[in-house]
Design a protein around this nucleic acid. Sequence first.
DNA 1: TCCTGATAGTTGTATCAACAACTTATCCCG
DNA 2: CGGGATAAGTTGTTGATACAACTATCAGGA
Lengths: 161, 161
Amino acid sequence: MDVRWLDDHERAAWVRLAAVLELLPGVLDAQLRRDAGLTHFEYFVLAMLSESPEGALRMSALAAQTNATLPRLSHVVRKLSDRGLVRRSAAPGDARATDVALTEEGWTKIRETAPGHVAQVRRHVVDALTPAQIDQLAGIAEAILGRIDPDRRFAANLRES
Amino acid sequence: MDVRWLDDHERAAWVRLAAVLELLPGVLDAQLRRDAGLTHFEYFVLAMLSESPEGALRMSALAAQTNATLPRLSHVVRKLSDRGLVRRSAAPGDARATDVALTEEGWTKIRETAPGHVAQVRRHVVDALTPAQIDQLAGIAEAILGRIDPDRRFAANLRES
DNA sequence: TCCTGATAGTTGTATCAACAACTTATCCCG
DNA sequence: CGGGATAAGTTGTTGATACAACTATCAGGA
């Protein structure tokens, strides 16, 4: 088995990407925990709901949009429900299914939280790049997604405010 | 508080980057768990050791290079030690400190594991990009790191083969 | 010398995510 | 109109990480 190792350019790029992969999630998570008492994943769940018509989604649809397994989502939704941010209701027409909807407090929470999160994204990512780099980044990430998520189960309708 | 929301270009780039942030670690982790029974973090620990002179490092130095807290590293090293991949020894000259070194089995493990991991990185990242994009990516990641890790505590001596 | 503060690590606890097992309901085909 | 197969969620258990508390050692100054 002979290995195609990375050349200098490739390694420089990968090493830096790996560092971003390691550090950036922690930075975003920390701000949300501190300022809103939310995990990044919990924030993302609320955000996806807020962008759906009526602020409600079927559990399995929500799981697909957030790239979560159903068990994971179930636990998280239960806790969000305990905190009064979402409400669960039996889905009309299919007795197996459950619909999740933002409560009034949930709407308030996401409206209050989004600006700080966007500011964080701006500070640490968007504003660090030139307009040309922004477009390059879109192309690069798109190309990588073509490999790791070929049928766009996840990234399809992503729209983080 | 008026918010500077993201425009279309910015959002396109961020949404895709966020998707990569969400999916890529899982892909890399899965391959290592399946083929080597190692967490990505455990692999990274072994890799950092393998690139140090003598294959040994002080605990705190290893923690810095892997961006881990000392408690986290302590737990992981204990388990790697139980599996016979590393050995802990009192550091000469400072009775507080601990040196961690790869065992012969540890060397074997990292040599066997590296090719598959590099292949994975190639398949999902490097080979998805043009040479121009490789260089763009290095620049973009570098710029982001300038914001999230200004004094390069982490990315300094990163050298993932 | 001795005392204070800082450094290096370990251990224990609570939180979060992955996986497996289970319940209930729906679909579809004979 | 059964009945097996699939789908939707929930619950329980395990493994992993963050955080806090603790022990032991070193460094430096009164």
